[in-house]
Design a protein around this nucleic acid. Structure first.
Length: 596
RNA sequence: CGGGGUGUAGCGCAGCUUGGUUAGCGCGCCUGCUUUGGGAGCAGGAGGCCGGGAGUUCGAAUCUCCCCACCCCGACCA
């Protein structure tokens, strides 16, 4: 039984000044955690209870799926990570250290190498596979910017599992098993989530999905449909291609002087006749021109893995920016860098601020490869640069007046864009990444020379998957998803207790002893109780603390106990705020039923 | 790493512009009395290297320079 009279905690009346995110504020105020280091937190008794509950849910669902728990050191030698090149690829995010003999070590950010090596150590036959092993371990990453309390720390708890299979079909089974287990465990945590297709980044491999808890404090943006259940990472959204428009009757393109219009905003004002030197004769007959009527041409530098660079032009609607993540996903493994002043000097055909399709394309003057947004279909007409300073061209028509060298999904997604799944509208939302599942393939097995013998005694390289759930981050996400103005509000399975019993009588009245007795009865039934037995503490303080701490059911032993004919106990639901007076004759059974 | 903000008691803050009593207030903490259903009242008390260092000055929380930490935005981020 947890007793407020001696529990190691001190609740705070004011918000800590260094906490902005609600879950961080309340976890500190309610005395679950304390900041101990940049990006590191100490767990106090209530926090540790909650942490272990989250951990237990994860563990139970992993075990239920038939996966086996193991445990590796966090302190590892660098050699395995050199074999996979991750010792350097991980860059500054890797904590490196040196022992007294000068040997180099690292604090593991994730454990693919060690799991692979251990399987290599123990197993050598196809008969041993498939295999899934997992651990719940502290991970270390030297994050550039820890933030938001437990949401991004430099030391954190993660469940990571690894699957080993002989072929893709086996990997698919392991992948699906994790996907299903994750769905179950997040549902048990009552954590809302969406599953979005993701790019696998530095992990290598192919199929990859992220579990995101859709919350505004999340760091990941994703796209979701406002009417159907479509959800995806911005990199994975495909723009529906509009129908082409017949050229018949479309006005001819015409070059106009448009002085001092190097930006889209100034250009739109100019052709709308706005401002001192606007040209009203260019106005649209029926409406104002908007940025969406302009064709913006953005030039970037592609940096290929072999070190060579290449310019690339992207044509897109003028009201959209180039989304670097989307573009990089399209041109991978090349990286994208901005096109700087020196680059412009090398390409005199590019008139900065007035770049148009006339100069762009592999066989045009600049020779720069020119890719178009999928919305730029044949027959669409654009206001765009005329490749001369202070000149733009109107009614330039795709397919008739210009073509690109291809299509690229690089434009940012905007609220209201067409849903690729149902044709309705999408919105941009934020989410906390709480889980991630990857099909790694043979990258690690190959690098570390893991093979097993097949039925013909031929060596085969197993194909792997890796699957992570951030345990401490999930805790914060649950807090974030459930809290309200009064404090935390835990789901029962995660809560530090089933019941928070407030003894609200004066000293010397029967309330104290009754609360003790009720707490014991509940404990005897296997339920967890937090008893506020503090003497000389006013009821108001106890009520406020109970709300702040967030146990799902608050039980008040108070004035109802004074009813001589039928004494009652108040039972309050933390989430809904609903109160009920329950007769002492049935209170124990009533509470047991609530908790089951 | 770039931009912005903040560091004063366990927590929240004032004081700094214009240098000058013993650095102040609320919460929390300790003692006593009263109080006990929504963060009680009165009285008394403890608790500070004013983030760190160097300077300017007769004198620095206050002015100058450097450093560190934290928060927010961006970049980055299995």
């Amino acid at each position: 039984m947890l007793r407020m009279s001696n529990l190691f905690l001190r609740t705070l009346r004011d918000d800590p000044s260094d906490a902005e995110v609600p879950s961080h504020r309340l976890l500190v105020r309610a005395s679950y955690i304390r900041r101990a280091a940049p990006g590191g937190f100490s767990w106090l008794p209530l926090g540790w209870e909650v942490f272990r509950n989250v951990e237990r849910i994860v563990r139970e669902e992993m075990n239920a799926a038939g996966f086996q728990e193991v445990h590796f050191p966090a302190l590892l030698p660098k050699e395995p990570y050199e074999a996979t090149h991750r010792y350097h690829e991980y860059g500054d995010n890797l904590f490196r250290l040196t022992d007294r003999h000068g040997a180099e070590f690292l604090l593991a950010p994730t454990h693919e190498e060690m799991f692979t090596l251990t399987v290599k150590d123990l197993y050598s036959s196809y008969r041993d596979l498939p295999l899934v092993i997992y651990q719940i371990q502290t991970k270390f990453r030297d994050e550039a910017r820890p933030r938001a309390g437990l949401l991004r720390t430099r030391e954190f708890s993660m469940k990571d599992s690894y699957s080993f299979d002989l072929d893709q079909a086996g990997l698919d089974v392991a992948y699906q098993a994790h996907r299903n287990a994750y769905i179950k465990l997040f549902e048990r945590m009552q954590l809302p989530f969406v599953i979005v297709a993701a790019t696998s980044g530095a992990m290598g491999g192919s199929a990859s999905e992220e579990f995101l808890a859709p919350l505004p404090v999340g760091e990941d943006t994703f796209v979701r449909c406002t009417s159907c259940d479509f959800a995806a990472n911005v990199e994975a959204v495909h723009t529906p291609v509009p129908d082409a428009i017949p050229f018949d009757g479309l006005p001819a393109s015409m070059v106009h002087n448009t002085p001092k219009t190097p930006t889209i905003a100034k250009l739109v004002d100019y052709v709308n006749g706005v401002g001192e030197n606007g040209d009203a004769s260019l106005r649209h007959p029926d409406r104002d021109w908007t940025a969406a009527d302009t064709l913006k041409n953005v030039v970037v530098t592609l940096r290929h893995p072999d070190g060579t660079t290449e310019p690339l032009a992207v044509g897109l609607e003028g009201h959209r920016e180039v989304d670097m993540k989307r573009l990089e996903a399209q041109v991978a493994p090349a990286e994208v860098a901005p096109f700087d002043e020196d680059d412009f000097k090398k390409y005199p055909a590019l008139k900065k601020g007035y770049i148009g399709p006339g100069a762009l394309g592999a066989n045009k003057e600049s020779g720069i490869r020119y890719l178009l947004d999928p919305r730029i279909v044949d027959g669409t007409q654009w206001i765009t640069g005329a490749d001369q300073y202070n000149q733009h061209v109107l009614h330039l028509t795709a397919g008739r007046d210009f073509t690109g060298d291809g299509v690229v999904e690089a434009a940012e997604i905007l609220d209201g864009d067409v849903c690729p799944s149902c044709g309705s509208n999408v919105e941009i939302a934020r989410g906390i990444e709480i889980g991630h599942i990857f099909q790694l393939g043979t990258k690690y097995a190959t690098a570390l020379e893991l093979t097993v013998r097949d039925e013909n005694d031929k060596p085969v390289t197993p194909t792997m998957g890796s699957y992570g759930v951030g345990v401490s981050r999930c805790l914060a996400a649950v807090a974030e998803a459930t809290l309200d103005d009064n404090g935390l509000c835990w789901p029962r399975e995660i809560s530090p207790a089933d019941f928070h019993i407030v003894s609200a009588g004066k000293e010397g009245t029967p309330h104290g002893p009754y609360a003790e007795e009720l707490a014991s009865s509940l404990e005897a039934a296997g339920l967890r109780v937090l008893l506020d037995d503090r003497p000389k503490t006013s009821p108001g303080v106890k009520f406020k603390d109970a709300e702040l701490i967030g146990v799902p059911t608050i039980v008040v032993v108070g004035r109802g106990l004074n009813n001589e004919d039928d004494p009652t106990i108040e039972v309050k639901d933390r989430k809904t705020g609903e109160r009920e007076d329950i007769s002492t004759s049935v209170i124990v059974d009533h509470l047991i039923a609530l908790a089951r």
